[in-house]
Design a protein around this nucleic acid. Structure first.
Lengths: 199, 199
DNA sequence: GTCTATACGAAGATAGAC
DNA sequence: GTCTATCTTCGTATAGAC
């Protein structure tokens, strides 16, 4: 997950300069989004902040939305390069991801913008990307929950897959609520989920 | 909640014709969004569907976003005019709201688009609207949960306010997951939350 | 391959006539 | 209250320089 850019989106030249340039664009773009938000920032503004023409961006990314997705993917892959926590339960994993996510300015906004766009008809790339992402996350959590159910750490009277969906939904939704009202205690609230899951 | 338009947003002329026209715009706009989505539908397209110029819409609503918020508010207030369910618990209420929401084509998309926009800097109206909305919903659910805790229907070892936040988050998040993957069993999954809340 | 220049149509918003 | 006209900016596409 944290290795090289695994994205298939916006792939172009594999030459050294192009790869470096692409990375530079991604790094700079996330900063621009952090300042001005993803929703209201145009291709042209991003290009200006980087110091190139907006057409140059479209050389590396086929469209504005693909650039946005690539920025999100890059920001997600870049952070905390390697945390191996074999002892982490499902809730621990989501708490970790959510608090990390919320620490990066603009990340929740970018994520919300992209998901909203993906829901709309016609956004096939977005649908594909986020469907796959949700599937992966749900499957990982389901496996973790099954493991902990078998170990007697998590109650077994509810379906692991349904709990996984609930956990992802709660994490996504809480981050939004926290952004609108920081007095919401994100971590603590998410951890009460663990209490609910105790056998 | 279901009475008259309680919105302060986009208020204009209070004369009979203006009110009727405003309502007509809202009714038609929700249909347009149901067909084409909120993200990709322009003021001009909505105006064309209604048979007026786009400038006419801006006479009733100060901006495109305010029109969108008004449409959402109107659609929410319009449906299921009066269900009084004193015996409903918090989960019942959310299951009811979520399944109703998901039944209206375009509603989840519209909601997601508006929330994403509200998170961005500069969207003060959107922030105000959704902050108030989240507050109201959380407070209502918290009261309901406290009542049921006192009655011994809901476990008392977790904070009611935190459970309310979790419940709202789970409902919002699950609706999105369901839209991307209808095989997610929305109602059933949401109801397992009730199991988790049992004492 | 990388990038600039430029053009196009559509968008949200505003001004002013009727 | 509603229109037309107009402004600015947007995403996208293409041609061609290096």
């Amino acid at each position: 997950m944290t290795s090289d850019e695994a994205s298939v989106i916006g792939r172009r030249g594999s030459y050294a300069k192009g790869v470096a340039r692409r990375r530079e664009i991604l790094d700079r773009a996330i900063e621009v989004f952090a300042e001005r938000g993803a929703h209201g920032t145009s291709l042209r503004q991003i290009a200006q902040a980087i110091g190139v023409s907006h057409a140059a961006l479209l050389h590396y990314f086929d469209s504005r939305e693909q650039l946005l997705v690539a920025v999100y993917e890059h920001a997600e892959n870049t952070r905390d390069t390697a945390q191996e926590h074999p002892e982490f339960g499902a809730v621990d994993l989501m708490v970790d991801a959510a608090t990390e996510n919320v620490r990066v300015p603009g990340m929740v906004q970018l994520y919300s913008t992209l998901v909203a766009a993906a829901l709309e008809a016609g956004s096939d790339d977005g649908k594909t990307f986020f469907s796959a992402r949700f599937d992966t996350v749900r499957d990982d959590l389901t496996a973790l929950l099954r493991r902990d159910q078998a170990a007697g750490l998590v109650r077994s009277d509810v379906d692991a897959a349904e709990m996984a969906s609930l956990l992802v939904a709660a994490s996504d939704g809480l981050q939004i609520q926290w952004l609108l009202k920081p007095s919401i205690r994100l971590e603590s609230t998410l951890r009460t989920f663990a209490t609910l899951l105790q056998p």
